[in-house]
């Protein structure tokens, strides 16, 4: 039990009330038809329901971009902040309010471009939050610009003759940061796998980085189309300690046994090749979480006042 040093009036334990799917449902989402964000939103609502998280004790923090509208479509607390800056805000919430369930939702431009510095450092702080990166390889809201995860050659308004550079590898990048503790990848065309991945991420104590591969129906509708048509393009990472989604395992023929505690193997599997790998790359439950590392015993105002007066003694003449 975390002692908050504050009154928890009216905040009954999460399990005392029964929450249903609709209790988490906000206004109708205004994403395009066919956008993968819809599937992720549904999976998140199912997670909240399955875990019976009190809406008032659940916070979704987002950045800016199509995906960052996410909190608006939920009936929890939300903070729709600045482009690239979801993670500092989420870290601030969790740092001083570890009693809250904190999720950060970002797009690929948000996380891997303008907010890349925060991404790296959030992995290192390892706060106990679920970070969902909705990666459709393009800037959608600003109308079709190249993102760091755009495949090389992808034509956009800022690279009309095709992207010049190889795409960034967010999984390998995250794995390379000190204190990485949970790194998983899933795709918007396998809803059951999204749900299983989010469940594992939520139950991980630490910074759970989940990259969700998506298409943008407007600008990158062919991204992962081959995987959709031909499930053999996908390889599922499986392990008794990994992510299990039986229906997806039946549909996808390629299975690979991968022990998520093996960081070196995770790196190898994260290297790009002809297969799209979904599943849990890495998990380490032993990395300290930042809000715990920095936890301090709370003080009443009276205790503080007494201590400040003692501190002033050191300056007294």
């Amino acid at each position: 039990m975390i002692d908050l040093g504050c009154s928890l009036l009216g905040s009954a334990a999460d399990t005392e009330r029964g929450w249903e799917f609709q209790d988490y449902q906000g206004p109708v989402a205004r994403w395009c038809a066919g956008c993968g964000d819809h599937a992720v939103l549904a999976a998140v609502q199912r997670l909240l329901e399955a875990e019976q998280l009190a809406p008032e004790r659940t916070v979704f923090v987002s950045g800016i971009g199509c995906s960052s509208r996410f909190p608006h479509y939920l009936k929890t607390y939300g903070f729709h902040g600045l482009h690239g800056r979801a993670l500092p805000v989420a870290t601030g919430v969790k740092l001083r309010r570890p009693d809250l369930h904190v999720f950060a939702v970002m797009g690929d431009g948000d996380c891997c471009s303008i907010g890349a510095g925060h991404w790296v450092h959030a992995v290192r702080y390892n706060p106990d939050i679920v970070a969902i990166m909705l990666d459709n390889g393009v800037y959608g809201l600003t109308k079709n610009q190249t993102s760091p995860t755009s495949p090389k050659g992808l034509k956009s308004n800022t690279a009309p003759r095709g992207a010049w550079l190889d795409a960034m590898n967010p999984i390998a990048t995250t794995l390379g940061v000190a204190n990485a503790s949970f790194v998983a990848q899933t795709g918007d065309w396998v809803p059951e796998h999204i749900a299983a991945t989010l469940r594992a991420a939520f139950h991980h104590r630490g910074f759970a980085f989940v990259r969700i591969l998506q298409r943008c129906p407007q600008y990158t509708d062919q991204l992962f189309a081959s995987a959709l048509r031909d499930p053999s393009r996908v390889e599922l990472l499986l392990h008794p300690d990994g992510i299990r989604a039986p229906a997806v395992e039946r549909m996808v023929p390629n299975h690979r046994e991968h022990d998520p505690s093996d960081l070196v193997a995770a790196f190898r599997l994260a290297q790009p090749d002809e297969r799209i790998r979904l599943g849990l790359f890495y998990r380490n439950e032993h990395v300290p979480v930042y809000e715990q590392v920095r936890a301090v015993p709370p003080h009443t105002a009276e205790q503080r006042a007494r201590l400040v007066n003692e501190e002033l003694d050191a300056y007294a003449l």
């Binding site: 500092p88 805000v89 790296v120 003080h299």
Partner: peptide, 22 residues
């Protein structure tokens, strides 16, 4: 000692971002 925390953030932007979050 007073129940407070100094968080040294990765940059000036994150420093205020964490404060805004808290």
């Amino acid at each position: 000692k007073y129940g407070g925390v100094v968080h040294q953030a990765e940059d000036e932007i994150a420093a205020i971002g964490v404060a805004v979050g808290a």
